[in-house]
Design a protein around this nucleic acid. Structure first.
Lengths: 153, 153
DNA sequence: ACCTTACTCTTGACGCTTCAAGAAAGTCGA
DNA sequence: TCGACTTTCTTGAAGCGTCAAGAGTAAGGT
């Protein structure tokens, strides 16, 4: 057992603010989407990801990666979206294991309805508070944090 | 109904990465604490917040603010921590409405046990990936995002 | 052909968070 | 002192996410 890698004061300060962001920003987002559209953020992410594809369809596993969700989580989310009639599942004829999530017309309409409110809430939460150079900094910082973010063990 | 405030391409790019951070960093943190200490991040936050007080006690409402939690959420969290024997609740003699959360000896031991692993995981997830100037940028950015983060309506 | 292994996805149980409701104590004015 | 109102906190139900297990399909080796 090695020496613990304690945080310096400067790191402490940064970490505390980051934690606050990590808690509050998702909560605010979730709240807006829930109130105004009856959607989870993950639900919205799935619908909007599908809506960006020309054919409005994606295999579950690819969708999971795009939405940063576990397969299990995605499966539950899509099951709920399917129950609402916003998504339908089809089996891939090429590979009987893969299920393809397909955005329905109602689902597309739902994204179109929810998108302006969501965009506005993102503006309020993030971009109204940052200068353009800060937006670039933010992008760089996030890229750094995501560099190889797995196996935290 | 006004014109929707759509995101520019640069904002889109920043937002997508930020969302990824917002999903993955908490998940990694939660995972490490759950595996290594059997604690929620919020549970750890509550214990460590209490441990920083000289008398190891704080009223629920102040604790909720420090941990960025709703009172309801805190109440559930503290109930679980209390069931584990890590926290105890006392009624404030000055004001019968307020409950004071008190860190027990076992609770203090629990923080001491969990802290090194947590610190290490924060280092891996964040500070190993950033230069010192970037840490300062991160602090500034978070402050901007938290400036008046409420009433997102 | 068969068996093993790997891959994709689903399921159910359990735990945590949210939300709406409400209990209990304090405060203030009439 | 009474009542209305506010503040602080708790509760229970419902929804969402995680985890472990497993079903179904494909691929590779013998």
């Amino acid at each position: 057992m090695d020496e613990p890698r304690w945080l310096t004061d400067e790191q402490q300060q940064a970490w505390r603010k980051l934690v606050e962001v990590l808690v509050k920003v998702p909560a605010a987002l979730e709240g807006q989407l829930q109130r105004d559209a009856g959607l989870t953020h993950m639900g919205y992410l799935v619908l909007s990801t599908l809506s960006e594809r020309d054919d409005r369809r994606l295999p579950m596993s690819r969708l999971a990666k795009k939405a940063s969700a576990s397969l299990s989580r995605l499966s539950h989310v899509v099951a709920r979206l399917e129950a609402q009639g916003w998504v339908r599942r089809e089996r891939d004829p090429e590979d009987g294991r893969v299920q393809i999530a397909v955005l329905t017309e109602d689902g597309y309409a739902k994204v179109v309805e929810a998108a302006p409110g969501h965009a506005d809430s993102v503006q309020q939460l993030v971009f109204d508070r940052l200068t353009t150079p800060q937006v670039r900094q933010l992008t760089k910082l996030c890229e750094a944090l995501l560099d190889a973010p797995d196996e935290p063990r």
